[in-house]
């Protein structure tokens, strides 16, 4: 059995996505160039349908805690801490959106309250079981970016 198909089988058995974490860029290796991350974090295209769910899921992106977006009117309670995201893809390129989601501090400023979703630049006393972990997986970020890219007016 080839290495590839073995990984594929292993993924099926434990039910994790076919893109193993090993293929993803480590948070420290993500390159920010002029407020943009041009390279996909996984080398795989993002899935906007999954990204829409990650965006709303309180345990994952929970982006709705801070941002309202008309596309998700079906969800109760949109936050007001950040700007409304209608038309976000008209204002930002895909690379910029990836940079904002991966580490907003690299785009806005150290002062922003938006968490870095694929960054280990975190606050003090991180809960023990989360040390060294990012809020979202690399593929979650790609999925969210693919979803944001659909937000055009």
């Amino acid at each position: 059995m080839s290495w590839k198909s073995r990984t594929f089988l292993a993924c099926l058995i434990v039910g994790i996505p076919a893109v193993a974490a090993a293929d993803a860029l480590a948070p420290a290796d993500v390159k920010f160039d002029d407020m943009s991350v041009s390279q996909s974090l996984t080398g795989q295209p993002g899935d906007p349908v999954k990204g829409r769910k990650v965006f709303a899921d309180r345990k994952l992106g929970n982006c709705l805690a801070c941002h309202a977006v008309a596309d998700q009117k079906d969800q109760l309670f949109h936050g007001e801490v950040g700007p409304e995201l209608d038309g976000a893809a008209d204002r930002w390129s895909e690379g910029e959106l990836r940079a904002i989601v991966a580490d907003a501090k690299m785009v806005f400023s150290e002062e922003t309250v938006m968490p870095g979703f694929y960054s280990l630049n975190v606050g003090a006393d991180v809960r023990k079981n989360l040390v060294g972990k990012t809020i979202l997986s690399a593929q979650d970020v790609e999925d969210v970016v693919a979803y944001l890219a659909t937000l055009k007016e």
């Binding site: 309250v113 968490p115 870095g116 975190v122 606050g123 003090a124 991180v126 809960r127 989360l130 809020i135």
Partner: peptide, 14 residues
Amino acid sequence: YTRTGQLNLSCASC
């Protein structure tokens, strides 16, 4: 004003 946790927020942030 100290930011804490994986979400990196302080009392002042909120």
